[in-house]
Design a protein around this nucleic acid. Structure first.
Lengths: 340, 340
DNA sequence: TTGAAAGCGTTACCAA
DNA sequence: TTGGTAACGCTTTCAA
């Protein structure tokens, strides 16, 4: 293969001044040409000379210097955490990113695992983003929001299961999921309903609202909702299954399909008939859920496309201020199969 | 809740000059105090005044200005793509990130979906990262590497299934996985071995090396390896299962556990006995694989911890140059259960 | 059509 | 112990 031409790592990084020197023009002219400035007329021959010089030197503009001069950046900061919290989120973030890039923003994900709320806000503020879209699993205090605003962020939006005071919020209201699942179970005549609460770190912000949606769904029924802690391991499921009959439940909403599959297998191994004795429903509509026997009922969640969020961010950047907005992005519907 | 104190979005962002003015000192002094500079002695009273002023104004240093002045950044750029290519990768990236943060780097993920190879390299170069760790699924040409180096990147490392010419490479050699799986099947007396090739976009860079590892494993045997395209859908699996007997295979390495589960179910529905007639093995050691009957055999992959990579990046940054290094990070071992 | 110069927010050198 | 000043790379206004 062709190795690196000459200096593998030597030499200073070429600047626009170097380009100007090589092309025999001033730095201003270089800037005009390279940015296709319309406010000035530059002769075609000069343009060619400048472009040729830039190419020859391998000139790449310095984003920091540019935004320093401009007084503002077009960086949208997307803090990230360890736990991706599902493929839904993952896909949504990618969509959001290309949406924002389409609006000419530079999207930057900034890992913030292990940072405290205000600590993180300070780190973000140093980057002077024009907007911050923070997953709700990252703590964001009014204090932190204030820090960001003072550092020039024109839009601060949270994105997650819950709104945060003082910021615009895009909520994926997980309560809807629990509500749909339990509503379905009620409609099937079930009255004693377990709700799996994963003990794994980071899922609580999702599990809690699902439970509260479940509770809300039974409010007008003579029915009971019972939270059931579960770790995502065979042993944990087996232990739960062993005491299942003592719980006297006739249905369970298993948080998601993965937990549902784990639990359903454990129940079957313990001799509990599904759905006869206990109905099981998950959430996420995984392909694998269709492979079980009985086939797993589920709540299919469908995030709205990310484009509206990208547009919202853009709108907030252009016209900051205004009362915090609150949008619910989640649509949920039950897919009834055989396990319920 | 306490709303934002006064100016929700008004007023310019406070600079060190503002802090200096308020504290009644010079900008230099502010810098000394806030950076705990050891080269100068500043009186305790001045320190307090400066810190108080900074807090009062909500001063946050401007990272871009700082690195412009410093002439270099401590940004490590981590380009990302849509397809996370598995939980292994996901976890590894998080680990890498905290490792680098521990070494005082600022890790920034930069979404590069839909960008061409050199286009992407240009975009990255504008950010003047001191190092780039690029997933191998992102094209990185010698040209692009050269662009990055000329823009000041002191370390360019690829991370993925294959090395890239001209850059240091951390390889998770997927061939190992295919090799282990097929070696296991051979040891079990199987001779006509199918290898599932997922047709889903983005998996090819992983599937190809797994296949080639499989091929390599049979080189000294009188045995056959047959690539089998499969989409991750029930229909696709059913169609493959329908013509299974015509293929006359006695084993299949199913790319990963998810595809294995899909295929195994389809085979069973088509009346094919597993493992009697056909052995099945996956990869990834998913919890769910243990729930099937027969329990799914699998290849457990175990990435090395990310700390060595963080250390490598740090070393390259401090001492650039030197021949491209090549590290293999993947360890794979067969977990023999019931399906093979 | 082009160039000179100012200034964005920092830090580091040198002088006071 | 502190302050003035220059410089990092870029854009843009004003003047030639």
């Amino acid at each position: 293969m062709s190795q690196l031409p000459k200096q593998p790592t030597e030499g200073p990084v070429p600047t626009s001044a170097d380009v100007a020197r090589l092309a025999g023009v001033s730095r201003a002219t270089v800037s005009y040409v390279l940015n296709d400035s319309t406010t000035v007329r530059i002769s075609e021959s000069t343009r060619r000379r400048v472009r040729a010089a830039a190419t020859e030197l391998g000139y790449v503009p310095h984003a920091a210097a540019r935004s320093l001069r401009a007084g503002h950046s077009r960086t949208v900061l997307l803090p990230t955490v360890d736990l991706p919290a599902g493929p839904l989120h993952q896909h949504f973030l990618c969509e959001l990113e290309s949406g924002l890039r389409g609006l000419d923003y530079t999207v930057v994900q900034y890992g913030s695992t292990g940072l405290g709320a205000d600590e993180a806000a300070l780190a973000w503020a140093e980057l002077r983003p024009v907007a911050v879209v923070a997953p709700g699993t990252i703590a964001l205090t009014p204090q932190g929001i204030s820090t960001l605003r003072r550092s020039g962020a024109r839009a601060v939006v949270t994105l997650g299961p819950r709104p945060v005071a003082g910021a615009h919020a895009l909520v994926m209201d997980q309560r809807e999921i629990g509500g749909r699942a339990v509503g379905h179970l009620l409609a099937g005549g079930r009255r004693r309903i377990g709700v799996i609460m994963p003990e794994d770190q980071g899922l609580a912000p999702y599990a809690e609202p699902r439970l509260s949606g479940a509770r809300h769904a039974v409010r007008n029924h003579v029915a009971l909702v019972e939270p059931l802690p579960l770790r995502y391991e065979e042993d944990s499921a087996a232990r739960l299954a062993a005491r299942w009959r003592a719980l006297r439940l006739d249905a369970v909403f298993a948080y998601d399909d993965a937990h549902a599959m784990l639990l359903m297998r454990a129940l079957q191994d313990a001799g509990v008939d599904v759905p006869g004795e206990t109905a099981v429903i998950g959430a996420d509509d995984l392909v694998l859920g269709r492979l079980l026997r009985p086939r797993l009922s589920t709540v299919r969640t469908e995030a709205a496309t990310a484009q509206p969020l990208a547009d919202l961010v853009d709108r907030l950047v252009r016209q900051p201020g205004g009362a915090p907005e609150y949008h619910d992005l989640l649509r949920a519907e039950v897919v009834h199969r055989e396990s319920s």
